[in-house]
Measured scan of single mutants.
Amino acid sequence: MADQLTEEQIAEFKEAFSLFDKDGDGTITTKELGTVMRSLGQNPTEAELQDMINEVDADGNGTIDFPEFLTMMARKMKDTDSEEEIREAFRVFDKDGNGYISAAELRHVMTNLGEKLTDEEVDEMIREADIDGDGQVNYEEFVQMMTAK
């Protein structure tokens, strides 16, 4: 299944994987998964984290390695993001709930994920998604960005 991913997608997933893999040992533990999910405003229980890991832990060693992570991402993409997942993601970014993602809100979430971005990089990300040019990202623009192939 992971063989249907483009090189660009694999590179993006590698970057995402390293955000989860806090200690850089090449595997994601339940603790690391929990840290990232909490930084995104989720509050999973230990059991939920274990279930999430077990779902993709092909070799049964209790952690997720990069090939397992790729399989999980490929699977998720095949079920292409349901509207509800996209709306949920939008809410994570839209901290003040005004229906727009500002540069400050984007920077806040990315920083929580451990991504240190310059102001230019954040502005560039907003510009790429900002179709109507108002300097922020509304829900429609967010959907376009998330579903762009």
Rank of each mutant, 00 (worst) to 15 (best):
Q42F: 10
G97E: 13
S39P: 12
M77W: 08
L33K: 00
F93W: 08
K76I: 09
I101C: 14
Q9F: 15
R107Q: 05
T111Y: 02
L40G: 03
I53M: 15
S102A: 05
L106K: 03
D21Q: 08
E124G: 11
I131T: 13
E120Y: 13
T29F: 06
Y100D: 13
E15M: 02
A11I: 06
E15Y: 08
P67F: 12
D21C: 15
G34E: 11
T111P: 07
A16H: 02
L117G: 07
M73P: 06
P44E: 05
E68H: 04
D94I: 04
E85K: 04
R87L: 08
T30R: 15
A89S: 13
S82I: 08
D130S: 09
N112R: 15
F93C: 04
R75S: 10
Y100E: 15
F69E: 06
E140F: 04
I86G: 14
S18D: 14
L70P: 00
M125I: 09
G24S: 10
I86N: 08
V36Y: 00
G62Y: 01
K116G: 15
M146G: 14
M73Q: 06
E85N: 10
N54Y: 13
G97A: 14
R107M: 15
L33I: 09
A104D: 01
M73S: 01
E83A: 07
A11P: 03
S82R: 12
K116M: 07
E83N: 00
D134E: 13
F20G: 06
A2K: 04
T6K: 02
E85W: 00
Y139E: 02
T80M: 12
E124S: 09
T45N: 08
P44G: 02
F66E: 01
Q136Y: 02
P67N: 02
D130Q: 05
M77V: 11
L49C: 01
E83Q: 04
E121G: 10
E85D: 07
N98I: 08
D119Y: 11
M73F: 14
I101M: 02
A58R: 02
F17K: 15
A11C: 08
A104K: 03
E84C: 05
Y139G: 00
E128R: 02
M77L: 12
Q9V: 04
G62M: 09
E46Y: 01
T27E: 06
F66C: 13
E12W: 07
R107K: 14
Q136L: 10
P44I: 05
K31P: 01
A74M: 06
L33G: 00
L70K: 13
R75C: 02
R87I: 02
